[in-house]
Design a protein around this nucleic acid. Structure first.
Lengths: 417, 417
DNA sequence: ATCGTTTGTTCGGCTGCCAAACAAAGCGGC
DNA sequence: GCCGCTTTGTTTGGCAGCCGAACAAACGAT
């Protein structure tokens, strides 16, 4: 009747290992703890040691988790240290900006192994952009021998709203020349890996959550100030995309109904006050009042204004102070509405640090007096200009940690390192 | 070796029935389907019919689910209809407003069995308010014979931010005379049931989600316009309370930096534009321009303005149109930030319907042009002035459906009906 | 009346997880 | 150096949960 002898169930381990939700969560735990013993896992999760042993036995043959020696004894037998092999796979993260393309090749811990960057008229040249993305991806993979075989997936950050249910469908309003189509599928077929697409602000928020100022914070907002202004929201530990995937358009929040007209059709949007073009315009307006400023003559760009502000120029300082105040009004509304624990300010202007944040915090303190519980910390991004590309890679990594069949080595030993 | 005979495991059913997450979810399914057969449950959930039989056998002795006859045959044996017994328990929902107290006694389907309402200076009289709540609760229970024994719990809606981790800790800023303490524990001990406290806008949103305009909608915002202005947010089907439980203070969103000062310390908050006192003030300002208006003379209240608007008075119409526009600016920002599928407008002024919503929708259409995907439907509340109290009861009901040990009859047959 | 269909139940079995027992490998006291 | 004591990891038996298959019950259709 019982055709299977007691020990024979070991045969299961040789075949496709089970990968249920519990083993998947252990897999993620080992990833985030870096080094951990079976006994620690048992204490950490409340599982029995025998169960942990069984599940770890299923994870070891994937090559993603390995035993790497013994740890210090705690008074008894020393534990066997399990380690996640962060080099067992790699991910391509693509930052498609309004005027540039950047690609990062990362390992499984978000560490950048290779980096490529080009300026390109992305808005007006969809076909050339797609070719450039493919070229830069190939360049990154070529830099690291063997990486192509270990590629897990490609993440793409796009500078416009994306519906997660239709990841190839881009907003036509922001990128009209793209005609509402991403057209990234050839990329997926060329490299034979799954593709993930999301908005750049969402992915910036994700990067901050995993590697930056948002580590360990379950509810925060990431506000990116560049040519436009966007935000990504992490609620209860996860990126919130809204009902149709376009949450986070803080740039068109109303600040001043008597302000300048915006492309969105009304006046005084945040983007018309603190977007890069708006700050340049404002500097030109104020030039006459600051004849001694280094910005009083010559060609103005957002970079020169930022440099001048860092050097203590009074005109630049005034612009930054005004920008901080206006951003503060929008963020105060955000705090009242959504009550995050933290606001992370990113984008080029965030390198001004407290010069931007102090006037911002002043406004927030005044604006949230009635609900003092809502006051949140405001910090600048910890990740540099690579945050968006790294966030795109992190998006893929997160999906793979939820379903480790995405890892090429996991169930295909011929592709293992 | 096997001391337990095959049929003996029926003894488990006589004792404490198992109540794991699966049986709990079946319990909730039966609740929401009202009438359903075992076979339908199996089709609906993907479980096997045998498993459904086992779990239903555990639910029947609680008295909350019962077999109530046979349904129509679908070509074979007719199904046994299972029905949730909505009268097997009842809940008290307390609406503590700024100037009134209302209490609803509901069955397990949100139906109001008894209702009590009193005006009271809640803000300035904490002790009297607590006594009044207890009195009205007792009155409601006395109206329905036997209800006290079936009481599941008491939910309280308070007009100020509440930290869900410290439900007895109220915001001192909004209700200074309460000194930051709810002091509701005596109520719980008197009626010997658990107590649940939350903000009124959150509970209004919950009521709309379960019984009103938000049924079946996973992401929406509920905006309540009364003396103050508050909002509650349902994200992915659940009420979102923010990092410290105070999300939804839309009343202090900045609309016009040159506007009138607000108690919160700055100018032009939404509450200073469309709160009841603001509308009355605005009517007085405009009186001279509308000599033929019925509001041109006499004492003005928000109710008289609403009545006049319903009757087609031009002054009142202008006020309502302005209010709709200002509310629209705030809601447009909300849409851009959070991208809900629906916005539900509640509070007294919502009875004006399209007279309020049309100018509101106009502003939204203009304001969200850039991210057209974010445009949401705007509707008025379907629930009347009882929505807050019913929402408070629904909060308790939701908790009980997650853990049916909260139902008095479930495991204590002596208290069963 | 017979057959096919649907429902609900029973029964044996597989899977997943656990507790207990045990082996391995350290520490510490004498 | 030997004997406990502790901690770690593995093995084993067992229990709970869920399923598939078989079966009885109750209907419709022919």
């Amino acid at each position: 009747m019982n055709e299977q002898a007691p020990g024979t169930n070991g045969a299961r381990r040789a075949g496709v290992a089970r990968m249920n939700s519990l083993s998947q969560s252990l897999f993620r735990l080992i990833w985030q703890e870096h080094q951990i013993s079976r006994a620690e896992i048992a204490r950490n999760t409340g599982l029995s040691r025998s169960t942990v042993t069984e599940i770890v036995d299923d994870l070891l043959p994937t090559g993603l988790v390995a035993e790497v020696g013994v740890g210090p004894s705690r008074g008894g037998r020393p534990p066997i240290v399990l380690e996640f092999n962060y080099e067992a796979g790699c991910i391509l993260g693509v930052d498609m900006g309004a005027a540039h393309v950047a690609v990062a090749l990362t390992n499984l811990r978000g560490h950048v192994l290779a980096w490529q960057h080009r300026f390109h008229p992305v808005r007006t040249d969809p076909e050339g952009t797609r070719a450039l993305i493919a070229e830069l991806c190939a360049k990154c993979l070529a830099e690291i021998p063997g990486s192509r075989k270990l590629l897990v997936g490609i993440g793409i950050a796009v500078p416009c709203p994306v519906d997660p249910l239709h990841p190839d469908h881009l907003s036509e309003v922001v990128l009209p020349d793209w005609r509402g189509r991403g057209g990234f599928k050839p990329l997926a077929t060329r490299f034979r890996v799954p593709l993930f697409v999301d908005n750049d602000a969402n992915l910036g928020a994700l990067a901050e959550r995993w590697w930056g100022a948002g580590r360990g914070v379950d509810d925060f907002a990431y506000v990116k100030v560049a040519t436009g202004v966007g935000s990504g929201h992490v609620l209860q530990g996860k990126v919130y995309r809204g009902a149709t995937g376009v949450a986070g358009e803080i740039g068109h929040m109303a600040i001043d109904p008597h302000g300048k007209p915006c492309v969105c059709g009304l006046r005084g949007c945040l983007a018309t006050l603190i977007g890069a073009p708006a700050l340049v315009d404002r500097a030109i307006e104020l030039r006459a009042q600051f004849p001694n400023s280094v910005l009083a003559t010559g060609h103005l760009t957002i970079e020169t204004i930022e440099e001048a502000a860092l050097a203590g120029d009074p005109l630049a300082a005034q612009i930054v102070t005004e920008a901080g105040g206006n951003l503060g009004i929008a963020i105060a509304s955000l705090l009242n509405l959504m009550n995050p624990r933290l606001v992370i300010v990113g984008g080029g202007i965030s390198r001004l640090g407290d010069q931007l944040l102090e006037p911002l915090r002043d406004v927030i303190r005044r604006r949230t007096l009635v609900s003092s519980l809502a006051v949140a910390e405001v910090r600048t991004s910890e990740l540099g200009p690579r945050s968006t590309a790294v966030g795109a890679a992190t998006y893929v990594l997160d999906a793979a940690l939820d379903d480790c069949r995405l890892f090429p080595s996991a169930f295909d030993p011929s592709r293992a390192a």
